[in-house]
Amino acid sequence: MSRTVLRRIHPAGILALWTLLLLLLTACQGAASPTTGEVSFELVALEPDTQIVGEVTLVLRVLRGEAPLAGAQVAVQGDLRRAGVLPVQGGGQTDSAGVVRVPFEWTTGGDWVVTVTITTPDGQQRAGQFELTIAS
């Protein structure tokens, strides 16, 4: 059926279609592994969506410029804003959408500072922090 459809299209149209497809593929490739732009991340979600002591999954999205960055190694360390409490560590690798899901645990209530260190596929390293107040 698709052959029938293609036969009905003008050769110039087929060429235009291929060009469009090529452009789209290039665009997707560019989004997955951009080589320019600043690396950043955003906390997309907490699963479950509550800030209380216990296990949680941090959903992070890593971007290079405006585009998602696939294949980046992400290391996460949570430090309580208090001395003498064991930091919590986790990590993972971003998928094609630049998203990584990091299993984590808030071990005690208080103010947590989460440091996210990203290592890009080309070996660059970027780090950033966000803060959350967790209740018991």
Binding site: V53, R81, T108, G109, G110, D111, S136
Partner: peptide, 10 residues
Amino acid sequence: LPMEMRGTIT
């Protein structure tokens, strides 16, 4: 009670 490390109070 669970001892927590008191955080920011809003």
